[in-house]
Amino acid sequence: KRPMNAFMVWAQAARRKLADQYPHLHNAELSKTLGKLWRLLSESEKRPFVEEAERLRVQHKKDHPDYK
């Protein structure tokens, strides 16, 4: 399984919050909304998630050196 990218790291927590706020939204609508919200974030707001995704990528490479 591939490591999560920055969006997926962020969306993991954001999806729970959004689903709690809008329990009537279908998963497809949640995903579209999350995409729009992510694009509205500034680079500095995204930075911690980009850094975490990079950490996960490096760890994955270490754990699975033959993964392509």
Rank of each mutant, 00 (worst) to 15 (best):
P48H: 12
H64N: 15
Q12K: 12
P65H: 07
Y67A: 14
L40H: 15
K1F: 01
S42D: 04
R55D: 13
L30H: 02
Q59N: 07
E54N: 12
L40M: 14
E29A: 12
H24R: 14
H26W: 06
K36G: 04
S42W: 07
M8A: 12
N5E: 10
Y22T: 10
V9G: 12
D66T: 08
N5A: 08
F49Q: 13
Y22A: 11
H26K: 12
Q12C: 01
E29K: 15
F49Y: 10
S44F: 08
R47N: 04
R2M: 01
R16L: 06
V50T: 10
M8H: 11
K1M: 03
S44R: 15
E29D: 06
R39L: 02
L30A: 06
R57P: 08
F49R: 14
D63R: 02
L18P: 03
Y67P: 14
R15P: 00
P65D: 12
R55T: 13
W10H: 01
K62A: 12
N5C: 06
M8C: 14
K1R: 06
K36R: 07
K1C: 00
E29M: 14
K1N: 10
A19I: 07
A14T: 10
R39Q: 06
R39G: 06
L56V: 10
S44E: 13
A28I: 08
P65Q: 06
E43L: 14
K62M: 13
R2V: 01
K17N: 11
F7D: 00
Y22P: 03
R16Q: 11
W38V: 06
P23V: 11
K62Q: 08
M4K: 13
A14C: 01
L40R: 14
P23Y: 13
S31R: 11
D63K: 07
E51Q: 07
P48S: 04
H60D: 10
S31D: 13
R47C: 02
M8R: 14
V50Y: 07
D66F: 05
P48R: 04
W10G: 00
R57T: 12
A19E: 11
P65R: 07
A28P: 06
Q59L: 08
A28F: 15
A13P: 01
R57F: 04
L56W: 01
V58F: 02
L41P: 01
L37N: 10
A13H: 04
L40A: 15
L56F: 05
H26F: 08
F49E: 14
S44L: 05
S31H: 04
L34F: 12
S44N: 08
R47G: 08
W10C: 01
E43V: 13
E43N: 14
F49H: 13
E29Y: 08
R55F: 12
K1I: 02
L41H: 05
A14R: 09
T33K: 15
Y22I: 14
P3S: 10
W38I: 00
A53V: 07
H24W: 13
K68D: 02
E54G: 06
M8Y: 07
S31L: 02
V58S: 10
A14Y: 11
F7Q: 02
K17D: 07
D20I: 12
Y22M: 15
L34E: 01
L37I: 12
V50M: 07
E43D: 14
Y67G: 14
F7V: 14
H64D: 11
D66I: 03
R15C: 02
R2S: 05
L30I: 02
L41F: 11
V9C: 14
L18W: 06
L25D: 01
L40N: 15
V58I: 08
V58W: 03
K17C: 13
Y22E: 03
P48Y: 02
S42R: 09
R2A: 03
M4W: 13
L34K: 00
L25H: 02
E29T: 13
R39Y: 00
S42I: 03
H60F: 09
K17R: 12
A14M: 14
L41A: 02
K17Y: 06
H24P: 03
R47Y: 00
A11H: 00
P48A: 06
K36Q: 03
A19Q: 12
R16C: 08
A53N: 05
R55C: 11
E51V: 04
L18Y: 03
L25K: 03
K61L: 11
Y67E: 15
E43C: 15
D20V: 11
N27I: 12
R2C: 05
A14N: 13
A14Q: 15
H24E: 07
R47I: 07
A6E: 01
V9L: 13
E51D: 08
R47A: 10
L37R: 11
R2D: 06
D66E: 13
Q12W: 00
L56Y: 12
D63G: 06
K36V: 02
P65T: 08
Y67F: 13
R16W: 01
E29S: 14
A13E: 15
P23L: 11
Y22G: 07
L25S: 01
S31I: 03
L18R: 00
S42M: 03
P48K: 05
N27D: 12
A19W: 06
R55I: 08
L34Q: 00
K61E: 04
E54F: 01
K17P: 00
Y22L: 15
W10R: 01
Q59P: 10
L34G: 01
D66Q: 04
S44G: 10
Q21N: 05
L18S: 00
A11Q: 01
R2F: 02
S44I: 05
Y67H: 12
P23R: 15
R2T: 11
E54Q: 07
K61G: 11
L56T: 10
S44D: 10
Y22V: 14
N5W: 02
Q12T: 06
P48F: 02
D20C: 04
Q12P: 02
L41K: 12
A28Q: 08
A53R: 11
H24S: 07
A53Q: 07
E54S: 09
F7K: 00
Q59V: 11
K68Y: 10
Q21D: 06
F7R: 00
R2L: 01
H64K: 14
E43W: 14
R16F: 00
P3N: 04
L56C: 12
E54P: 09
W38C: 02
H60T: 10
H64Y: 06
K36E: 02
L18Q: 00
F49K: 13
D66K: 05
L40F: 08
P48E: 06
V9K: 14
H24V: 03
E29P: 14
N5R: 07
Q21G: 04
L40G: 15
D63M: 09
K36A: 01
K1Y: 01
E54Y: 00
G35T: 14
N5S: 06
A13W: 03
R2E: 03
P48G: 07
R15I: 02
L40T: 13
R15D: 00
K46Y: 00
D66Y: 02
T33H: 14
W10Y: 10
H24I: 02
V9S: 12
T33Q: 12
K46H: 07
W10Q: 00
W38F: 06
A11T: 06
P65K: 03
Q59Y: 03
